[in-house]
């Protein structure tokens, strides 16, 4: 009797430990994505077809840099990137305020806002 009670107590403590660990994992994960969390991916093909439909929205972009099209000091750079899940390349603008070295071929996650004229304005980015 005593051993059964002791056994159930032991099982409960283990379950709590596992649940605690899972919760910690979730919390750590949420804290790791920072301000990228909760963003949906940009539907690239739709964007290319009608960029005006996406003005004002903010999206998460998972891209690989294809080439740098233009750079202007104090303004930023225009890059051609290949977005995940799409065969088309799209142009993005990375302002000079994001002080990171960007190299062709590197993969990034970006938080981007669609601005006037369909400009994909990168607000934040990180490698992945």
């Amino acid at each position: 009797m005593f051993s059964i009670k002791r056994q159930s107590t032991h099982l409960l403590s283990h379950s709590l430990l596992v649940a605690g660990l899972m919760l910690c994992g979730i919390l750590l994960s949420a804290c790791g994505r920072g301000n990228f969390s909760g963003l949906e991916a940009l539907p690239v093909d739709d964007y290319v077809e009608k960029p005006g439909n996406f003005l004002g929205n903010t999206y998460l972009l998972s891209v690989q840099i294809d080439s740098q099209i233009e750079w202007k000091e104090g303004v930023g750079r225009i890059l051609a990137v290949e977005a995940e899940g799409s065969s088309s390349r799209i142009p993005i603008f990375v302002p000079d305020t994001i002080e990171q070295n960007l190299h062709v071929g590197q993969r990034y996650e970006m938080r981007a806002n669609i601005r006037k004229g369909g400009l994909i304005y990168v607000e934040d980015l990180r490698k992945f």
Binding site: Y47, V48, P51, I78, S88, G117, I120
Partner: peptide, 24 residues
């Protein structure tokens, strides 16, 4: 054609996207 239309409306980013798609 899409690039031309976007450029005509001063939507340079849209035009640029269309040109990149055409170049693909």
């Amino acid at each position: 054609d899409r690039a031309d239309r976007q450029a005509a409306n001063d939507h340079h980013a849209g035009a640029l996207a269309a040109y990149l798609a055409a170049q693909d």
